[in-house]
Write a protein that binds this DNA or RNA. Structure first.
Length: 560
RNA sequence: CGGGGCGUGGCUCAGCCUGGUAGAGCAUCCGGUUUGGGGCCGGAAGGUCGCCGGUUCAAAUCCGGCCGCCCCGACCA
């Protein structure tokens, strides 16, 4: 029985003063969530229903690929975290118990689940396995933000696969791809599966599931047939108009012009006609020079992947000692490996001359300097993939899948004996989904000026009945009956039986965003009808009172 | 961690600059009225002005410290 008169649904006319994101404002206003502290939120009854519907979709689709649900504790001893090498992560909450033993609050569960596997799995016959749980995660985020989009405590579905080899991992990964695709289809969200960063610590592949929305913290590059996180996106650069080629580089006086913008405007050359140098020190040792077009930007993640190592920008002193005067450096004549970005097309470019107040014009890669080709720039809107233009959108990461390999099984000693009696490391994958982010992304994607408009599968209730009429009235009696009938048909119903005016009830219903709103009022009832409003688009139709419940149930099945 | 902002009744805010009785709208409670778009009339209750200290005859207001929250950036295993 969910009668609004006795329900805890504290709606507000005004959004919280400090809210910016649409989902933050609307979820608080609609009475779904309340803040406890920075990055700490309570889910009120209606909000929790949404969260649990998302969780249930996840559960069903994971069970369908043979995953087994379990539950692991949030409070962990420090020891496995020390073994995995994750004890020193800043985001990890650390504490001590009464005996002064080091404890942590889990930010994920690779350590714990791998520990169980290490203890239990002995033989190749025990594999493969898919285990998951839906459990609280604690992360001491440097900056929680935007309501439930980025919090310090949140619930995550995390699953883990255990296989005997790389092929097994690939199969387990493919199963998760199919399950995740179905999950996000069922949520009703607009979503993309994009290539993600595998991280330089290893990993054999990763994808992220991204839901485009204004409050998203990530950027994704999209083109027909292509979707990637901007961190790793790759595309063909747009051409740039270069000056005619010359036989050999010509030195130009460019006093004080140390920036791309200055040189470009003074010489009348587009920024893309310049090659800029980005000297880096790789792994604390070797100096290298990355060259890319003046209108492009280095993508540190792609560069790290290309180098297969950590790096840092070279200091001004290192540049001055080994290359030339900062602001005027270039690839010609330097005794350093040069990495040339793929966005640099054939032609003559302007570069630093390695001499104060001078640049070279007409420098051609290959002719005037040798290089190794790399792809280390950030994609920009308008670049192309297979001839299709790239657009860039903000998006929220609602899920991720990751081929871990043997990183954890090695450190936590999870191995098995193969057919030949040889000990082998177990190959792992890990896979996360945040139900709270699914809920928030749905709010972001479908809200209008009236409030939230839930996809049918996530709504806190399928139908909201608004009754206009006093106690004991004919309208009330009809609405009471309708409420029972709809529930008997398997729909979840919120019944606004409050003693409030129509305006307030309509406004609250539209704010909460259940897919259908039924209005039972004296006027329409007199003509043998009730009003049915579809929240998405706010279109209304009249439904005859005879067979109203069945008609509503049928209409509900047609909704997005 | 760097930069910016905010903290006054349940919510949104004014008051602070220029020190002197703590306010408004909404919400709440009581009575009445109204019932298809947050309606109306009358009455009432509700505030350690984030905390600590200082200046002063007197501090929401000025000064110092602390705490909390938000935004931008960095970070995000």
């Amino acid at each position: 029985m969910t009668r609004l008169s006795g329900y805890f649904l504290p709606t507000e006319r005004e959004p919280p003063a400090d809210a910016e994101a649409i989902s933050h404002k609307l979820m608080v206003r609609a009475g779904l969530i309340r803040q406890v502290g920075a990055g700490l939120w309570s889910w009120l009854p209606a909000g929790w229903r949404v969260h649990e519907r998302a969780a249930q979709i996840i559960r069903e689709e994971l069970n369908a690929i043979g995953a087994h649900e379990m539950l692991m504790p949030v409070l962990n001893p420090a020891e496995p975290w020390r073994r995995s090498g994750r004890y020193d992560i800043d985001e990890l909450f650390k504490l001590k118990d009464r005996r002064d033993a080091d404890m942590v609050l889990a930010l994920a569960h690779e350590e714990i689940v791998t520990g169980h596997i290490a203890q239990v799995v002995r033989s190749y016959r025990d594999l493969p396995l898919i285990l998951y749980h839906i459990q609280t995660k604690e992360r001491d985020e440097p900056r929680p933000r935007a309501g439930v989009l980025r919090t310090r405590e949140f619930i995550m579905k995390d699953s883990y696969t255990f296989d005997r080899d790389r092929e097994g991992l690939e199969a387990a990964y493919a199963k998760h791809v199919s399950a995740y695709d179905r999950i996000f289809d069922r949520t009703g969200l607009e979503w993309y599966r994009v290539e993600g960063d595998v991280g330089y610590m290893g990993g054999f592949g990763a994808h992220e599931y991204m839901a485009p929305c204004a409050a998203g913290e990530n950027e994704i590059a999209l083109a027909d047939g292509y979707a990637a996180n901007m961190e790793v996106a790759s595309a063909d650069a747009q051409p740039v108009e270069l000056p005619p080629r010359v036989n050999e580089p010509e030195r130009l006086s460019t006093p004080g012009m140390t920036t791309v913008a200055q040189v470009a405007s003074e010489l009348g050359v587009p920024a893309g006609g310049l090659l800029k140098a980005y000297p880096v020190v790789v792994d604390g040792g070797e100096l290298r020079m990355v060259m890319l077009r003046g209108d492009h930007r280095v993508n540190d993640i792609k560069l790290r992947l290309a180098l297969q190592a950590d790096f840092r920008p070279a200091s001004a002193e290192e540049v001055a000692d080994r290359i030339g005067p900062p602001g005027f450096i270039g690839p010609v004549g330097v005794d350093l490996p040069v990495l040339l970005d793929a966005g640099v097309l054939d032609g003559g470019y302007v570069t630093g001359a390695n001499v104060v107040d001078a640049h070279l014009r007409g420098v051609e890669p290959g002719r005037d300097f040798t290089f190794e080709r790399v792809d280390v720039r950030s994609v920009v809107a308008g670049d192309t993939v297979n001839g299709h233009a790239v657009r860039i959108q903000p998006a929220i990461e609602v899920g991720n899948i990751f081929k871990l390999g043997t990183r954890y099984s090695e450190r936590l000693e999870a191995s098995y004996l193969d057919e030949h009696g040889h000990s082998q490391l177990i190959w792992m994958g890990s896979y996360g989904i945040g139900p709270a982010r699914i809920a928030a992304a749905a709010v972001e994607q479908f809200a209008d000026e009236k409030g939230i408009s839930w996809p049918r599968t996530l709504a806190p209730f399928d139908v909201e009945i608004v009754v206009l009429g006093r106690e004991e009235s004919q309208e009330r009696r009809f609405a009471d009956g309708l409420y029972e009938e709809l529930q008997a048909l398997g729909l979840s119903v919120l019944y606004d039986d409050r003693d409030a005016g129509p305006g307030e009830k309509f406004a609250d219903a539209e704010l909460l965003g259940c897919p259908l709103r039924l209005t039972v009022g004296k006027r329409s009832l007199a003509s043998g009808e009730i009003e049915m409003q579809v929240r998405r688009g706010l279109a209304s139709t009249m439904v005859p009172v005879d067979g109203a419940a069945a008609a509503v149930a049928e209409a509900w099945r047609q909704l997005p």
